[in-house]
Structure formats: C-alpha cells, structure tokens
C-alpha cells in the first residue's frame, strides 16, 4: 500500500466508530425528546456534550491523518 492509501484508511476506519456513536446518541436523544418534550433543553445540552466526546475520537484520527499527510 502506498502512503496515500494508508492515510485514507486512517481517517476512514477511524470515522466508523464515532459515526455509529453519534448516530446512537442522536437517535436516543430524539426519542427522549419525543417522549418528553418539556425536557428538550436539558436533553439538548447533554446531547451536545455526548456528540463532543464521540466526535473527539474522529478528530484524533483526522489529526493523525493530517500529520501523516503534511508533516
């Protein structure tokens, strides 16, 4: 494999788990808001926090890929 393939695979594989995680968080949050619309603002702040933690994993993979590509 040449280096560009490896860089592509780094972010592609690194993006799988966060994508599933963000999907799960989003679906559960929408479900919760549907069940209890009054709690929407509380759910939303927890939703954004959950997104941030899940997304951080993808960002790590992205930073590794960027470092491999440009440094």
């Amino acid at each position: 494999m040449d280096s560009n393939t490896i860089i592509g695979l780094t972010i592609a594989i690194g993006g799988i788990a966060p994508a599933i995680a963000i999907g799960l968080i989003g679906s559960k949050a929408v479900e919760a808001i549907g069940r209890n619309p009054e709690a929407a603002s509380k759910i939303q702040s927890n939703l954004i926090l959950g997104f941030a933690f899940a997304e951080a994993i993808a960002i790590y993979a992205l930073v590794v890929a960027l470092i491999l590509k440009f440094v």
Binding site: A52, E55, A56, I59, Y60, L62, V63, L66
Partner: peptide, 16 residues
C-alpha cells in the same frame, strides 16, 4: 489533550 485536539482538529479540518 482532548480539549487541545478537539478544537484544533475541527478548525484546521474546516480550513483545509
């Protein structure tokens, strides 16, 4: 580390 890379990665990815 998490604070550092989350913000940096998001912004640099946007610029690129």
């Amino acid at each position: 580390i998490s604070f550092t890379f989350r913000l940096f990665g998001n912004i640099i990815a946007g610029e690129i």
